[in-house]
Amino acid sequence: MISRRTLLGGLAASAAAGAGLTLASRAVGSPAPVRGRAAGLPLEIVNNSGEFDNASVYVYIVGNDGTQQVRVTPEGELKPVAVADNGSDGFTDYAIPLAGSGTTTLTLPKMSGRIYTSLGGKLKFKAVEDGNGKAALAYPAGWVDSDPNYGVLHDCAEFTYNDGGMYCNTTMVDMFSVPLAIKLTGAKDQTTGLLKDGARDKIFSDLAGVEGFDKLVIDDKRVIAPGHGLGAGRFDENYLAAAIDEAWAAYESKDLKITTNAGTFTGRASGGKLSFTGPASVSFDKPSTKDVLFCDGALAAPNDGTTGPVAAILGAAFNRGTLTSHAEQPTTDPATFYQQKLANHYARVMHEATKDGKAYGFAFDDVASFASYIEDGAPSRFTLTLTPF
């Protein structure tokens, strides 16, 4: 399985200096280079939102072809992002309108990226030059109140489509606003992302009722992930500190066993490090709340087959609140998740809202296959549905 981290790398990792926007970085994978109107995967956009008609919905397909940042035209052409695409207002207009009624059928070229939907207004993507002088795209950052897209309802799904097949997911890693579901037709039919009836309202109300998470609710527009809440002053930067200290203390006197594809690692905490022996020697500094929520910093997961998988499992256990109570990881019983007060209850609420119990509430949510992710080596159609509010 290709995880979201392998799938997209750091697609939305760094901020555009001075712009309050998110600048897309290189998405990994080996897609084909830009070839204009090449054959691609049929992409269907279905508007079942019930709140917005087709004329009020816009689609944006943006990402990377392996060599440069690209966008898809309404005709299915893959074109490189260009600073010259910015209009008189300083922003590009890469919007793809929906058909007048019914299903909109587009063509998805081979690439890695995101399919954004905006409702009630267009998004403002700004083309800029990155540090290497190449054209790049500043993505919407709905958790930044100065972002030009802050007032627009929008959300996205993520994908890589290449010679190996189609790999895709819905995501709440950054925020949740628009209920989206994805269906992949190919060797078999697969669907994920479907919410329970009335779930959007319940997500908002449930988070508003959790102490420490209530400020993550932005009116009726969106709820933002707690990691982004740190930067916005909406979440306590030390929220998980006591839970992290508790786990460190617990494994000073007993073993923590983490099993990956490489084998079983055995760890003990000493001082500021959690050190493991086994298939390889790996160690981790004590993480901060920010490290846990972003699954980065002390819990960064390199694609090395050893440190990376252990970091992912540690990050999932911290977010799910199972690290101290379960000395053998990963835990796979969802009934044990989020039972501790100090856990990522944003992710809990997202999982509770979905029909299949799967969601991407944090970056390591694919551990033990709890992410809203599907793949197919022989895809014939991909469908993105705006589901009822």
Rank of each mutant, 00 (worst) to 15 (best):
M1C: 03
L7Q: 13
G9H: 04
A12I: 04
A13M: 07
A13H: 05
A19Y: 07
A19M: 05
T22A: 14
L23V: 08
A24V: 02
A24H: 07
R26T: 15
S30L: 09
R37N: 13
L41Q: 02
S49M: 04
S49R: 02
G50Y: 03
A55P: 00
A55L: 01
S56H: 08
S56M: 13
V57H: 06
Y60M: 11
Y60G: 03
V62P: 02
G63C: 05
G63S: 05
D65T: 10
T67P: 00
T67A: 15
Q69H: 15
V72P: 06
P74M: 10
G76S: 12
P80G: 13
V81M: 07
A82Q: 13
A84K: 09
S88N: 13
S88P: 09
D89I: 01
G90S: 07
D93M: 01
Y94F: 11
Y94V: 04
A99W: 05
A99C: 01
T103I: 13
T117A: 12
L119P: 00
G120F: 14
K122V: 09
F125M: 08
A127Q: 08
E129W: 04
D130V: 06
A138Q: 14
V144T: 11
D147M: 08
D147I: 13
L153W: 03
L153P: 01
L153Q: 10
A157M: 10
A157E: 07
F159Q: 09
Y161W: 12
Y161H: 11
G165S: 09
G165C: 08
Y167V: 13
M172I: 00
S177I: 05
A181P: 00
L184T: 11
T185S: 12
K188A: 15
T192Y: 02
K196D: 04
D197F: 07
G198D: 06
I203L: 05
D206Y: 02
A208K: 07
V210C: 01
E211Y: 02
D214W: 00
V217Y: 00
D220G: 14
V223L: 06
G229L: 10
L230G: 05
A232R: 12
A232E: 15
R234H: 11
F235R: 04
L240F: 15
A243Q: 11
I244T: 09
E246T: 15
E246W: 00
E252T: 10
D255N: 14
K257A: 15
I258L: 05
G263H: 10
G263P: 04
T266K: 10
A269T: 14
A269D: 01
P279M: 08
V282Y: 02
F284L: 06
D285R: 13
T289N: 08
G297L: 13
L299V: 12
G308L: 09
G308K: 04
P309K: 08
A311H: 06
A312K: 13
L314D: 07
A316L: 02
T324W: 01
S325N: 14
A327H: 13
T332F: 05
K341M: 02
N344A: 03
N344L: 06
N344V: 08
Y346K: 02
A347F: 03
V349Y: 01
M350Q: 12
T354I: 02
D356M: 09
K358T: 11
A359T: 13
D366N: 14
D366Y: 15
A371T: 04
S372F: 09
E375D: 12
E375N: 06
G377S: 13
A378W: 00
A378E: 06
P379R: 02
S380H: 00
T385N: 02
L386F: 03
